[in-house]
Simulated scan of single mutants.
Amino acid sequence: MSSVDVPEQVPPSLAGTSVPGGWAQTDRHGNLVPTPHLRQLFEYFLSALGEETLEQLVARIEAALSALEEPARSQALATLGAYLEYKLAVSELEQSYSQVSGLEAGEMQRRMAEIQALRRTWLDADTADAFFADDEAVDHFQIEKLKIAGDDSLTDAQKAEALQRAESSLPAPLRKAREETRRFSDYEQARLALADDPRALEAWRQEAFGEEVAGKLARLEEEQKDWDSRWQSYSRDRHRLMSSGLAAPERQEALERLRASYFNETERIRAEALDSIR
């Protein structure tokens, strides 16, 4: 276990967040069962690199892994070490690639194969599959999509059918996520097309999402319209206040009163954050 000095406070980017769960899985002999959740645990802490050193973040991961009993604890620590070696190796590999935008399917496939081989060099097959199955399914789909788009022998209808077949090979959660993304993309287009016909838009929502979700979307839109209206009025008043020539302390007090007159407590936090970036 590492003897690195680790601050009591977590890195700022992790403050208020929860450590991923579901990773402490073992079989009936006490051996570690690799899962996507274990990789999520690693990446949760490693995402704060730069706020703390790698050694400090690794020590935090090791502390989390100490909840495991042997032999799973040692196996998890070994997996962490192998994963870090893989991360370093893949970073060096990616640096060797020329920075070319719009890669063709063949070149993308070659690069993905090299990265997949690296994963299975540093990690055993079960761990590599558990950690990267979804990523590799998406990579395969993206390659197929490029191949389909570049196949001039196919009609638009045939390309759409081939794309649907390729998408069907994705894991169910990823397919569902893509379907949801498409539905909301279609909704944005419908909102623009039916902006002047609220009844038609409501009918579209009901058909596309069902009554419950359609109702939530309608309420969210009304809330957004209300916010936009109040924000515009607040912004005009704020501009006049900031140009009033008041001394800084009085100006700040007046600004806080102004926010309170337009927004509730939660909205004031959002308004203050928006003010800070303009």
Score class of each variant (00 low, 15 high):
Met1Asp: 07
Met1Ile: 08
Val4Asn: 03
Val6Gln: 05
Gln9Cys: 05
Gln9His: 08
Val10Pro: 06
Pro11Ser: 15
Pro12Asp: 06
Pro20Leu: 07
Gly21Ser: 08
Thr26Arg: 05
Arg28Asn: 12
His29Arg: 14
Asn31Asp: 09
Asn31Leu: 04
Leu32Asp: 07
Pro34Val: 08
Thr35Met: 05
Pro36Asp: 02
Arg39Glu: 04
Glu43Ala: 06
Glu43Pro: 03
Glu43Tyr: 04
Phe45Lys: 02
Leu46Thr: 08
Leu46Val: 09
Glu51Trp: 12
Thr53Ile: 06
Leu57Asn: 00
Ala64Ile: 08
Leu65Cys: 08
Ala67Pro: 04
Glu70Cys: 06
Glu70Asn: 11
Ala72Leu: 10
Arg73Gln: 09
Ser74Lys: 12
Ser74Asn: 10
Ser74Ile: 07
Gln75Asp: 13
Gln75Met: 14
Leu77Met: 13
Leu77Phe: 13
Ala82Trp: 12
Leu84Gly: 09
Leu88Gly: 13
Val90Ala: 03
Glu92Met: 13
Glu92Gly: 11
Val100Cys: 08
Ser101Asp: 10
Ala105Met: 05
Gly106Leu: 15
Gly106Phe: 14
Glu107Ile: 10
Arg111Val: 13
Met112Leu: 15
Ala113Asp: 08
Ala113Arg: 06
Leu118Ile: 01
Leu118Arg: 04
Asp126Phe: 12
Thr127Tyr: 13
Asp129Gly: 00
Asp129Cys: 01
Asp129Pro: 01
Asp134Cys: 00
Asp135Glu: 10
Glu136Ala: 00
Glu136Thr: 00
Glu136Asn: 03
Asp139Gln: 12
Phe141Gln: 00
Gln142Val: 06
Ile143Glu: 02
Ile148Ser: 01
Gly150Asp: 02
Asp151Val: 00
Ser153Asn: 11
Thr155Val: 10
Ala160Phe: 10
Ala160Gly: 03
Ser169Gln: 12
Leu170Lys: 05
Leu174Trp: 00
Arg175Pro: 04
Arg178Leu: 07
Arg178Val: 00
Glu179Ala: 10
Glu179Met: 12
Arg183Asp: 02
Tyr187Arg: 11
Glu188Trp: 00
Ala190Val: 03
Ala195Ile: 02
Asp196Met: 04
Arg199Gly: 14
Glu202Phe: 08
Ala203Val: 13
Arg205Glu: 07
Glu211His: 15
Lys216Tyr: 11
Arg219Cys: 07
Glu221Arg: 02
Gln224Asn: 11
Ser229Glu: 15
Trp231His: 14
Ser233Met: 15
Ser235Cys: 06
Ser235Asn: 08
Asp237Tyr: 12
Leu241Ser: 09
Leu241Cys: 11
Ser244Thr: 08
Gly245Arg: 14
Arg251Thr: 03
Gln252Asp: 09
Glu253Met: 11
Glu253Gly: 01
Asn264Ser: 06
Glu267Leu: 09
Arg268Thr: 00
Arg268Asp: 00
Arg278Leu: 11
